[in-house]
Nucleic acid binder design. Structure first.
Lengths: 153, 153
DNA sequence: ACAGTTGTATAAGCTTCCTATGTAAATCTG
DNA sequence: CAGATTTACATAGGAAGCTTATACAACTGT
């Protein structure tokens, strides 16, 4: 059990792996808002973009189990962010929709995260910022396609 | 709000912010491993790269509270992934270091993530892959600097 | 109409975070 | 140098958010 530092441990990975790691840290650590969980936010966002959806669809979409989504929707309903209705076509199904309050929270969350990211970008020098913007414009679309195609499997 | 020369530089950052935000969420979803939490993994990784560190340093580094880090270290110690010792210079402080088992787990985690990444990259054409890797090489250092400067505040 | 399937809810439990507070070692102060 | 303060960590109690196992009601096919 030696405790000598291993300087290479991070560098032996593919640069993309390192980027994904860093992005995960960015999402969870630097941009996390305490008011709402990541799953809650992306669920609201999904409902906002796609309209009312069934519980099971939301669960699959978010990659959580159905009971987890039941609980999440219950919490969101308690806070007035979503509303629930019965599917007219199928009496078993629950249709979940985002409320105006939910949309307002989404907008506020987007504003806050953007603000924080802008702060972070503000710590870079103008040259670095320009370089980051240029590199990001090239790289991020590629990365997005990669992640999306992986999600569609 | 004016048409001063600098008015646009901030606007230019916004598209980057939006894409970064989206990708960060995707990264969290696609790369989460169930065997160990993100904080646990990045803490082990930090110890592996930097050698033994105090509890409070680890807490600050990971952006969690000191009691949370105490608990995390207790769990990691119970699983044999870290060891604890008293700082010879300061009887209050605890020095946490990664064990061989911890390093082995890190290596295994990296291997698994690498495997998954390779699957994703396998869906690209050789040309796309080359392009993505090249762009990543430019983008990664800048992303690192962004995260670093944000962490130092 | 009855059996099987499907959509959701409930129960029980785990992990990981939090705030509030306790304790002991180090440091400052008169 | 003794008492007060600060610092580093531990403990207690609780909440969020996830899990698996199970129950139940509504739909579906024969």
């Amino acid at each position: 059990m030696s405790d000598s530092p291993n300087a290479d441990s991070r560098e032996d990975a593919h640069p993309i792996a390192a980027i994904l790691d860093d992005l995960a840290v960015l999402a969870v650590r630097r941009l996390s808002t305490r008011e709402i969980s990541l799953t809650a936010a992306t669920t609201l966002s999904y409902l906002d973009r796609n309209g009312p959806a069934r519980l099971s669809v939301l669960a699959a979409e978010q990659g959580v189990t159905q009971p987890s989504m039941t609980q999440l929707v219950q919490r969101l309903e308690r806070e007035g962010l979503v509303s629930r209705g019965v599917d007219a076509q199928d009496g078993r199904a629950v249709l979940v929709g985002v409320t105006d309050a939910g949309r307002a929270l989404l907008a506020e969350r987007r504003r806050r995260r953007r603000e924080r990211l802008d702060e972070m970008l503000g710590t870079l020098s103008p040259g670095e910022l320009r370089e980051l913007t240029r590199a990001a414009g090239e790289f991020l679309p590629l990365l997005r396609r990669l992640l999306q195609s992986a999600a569609d499997e």
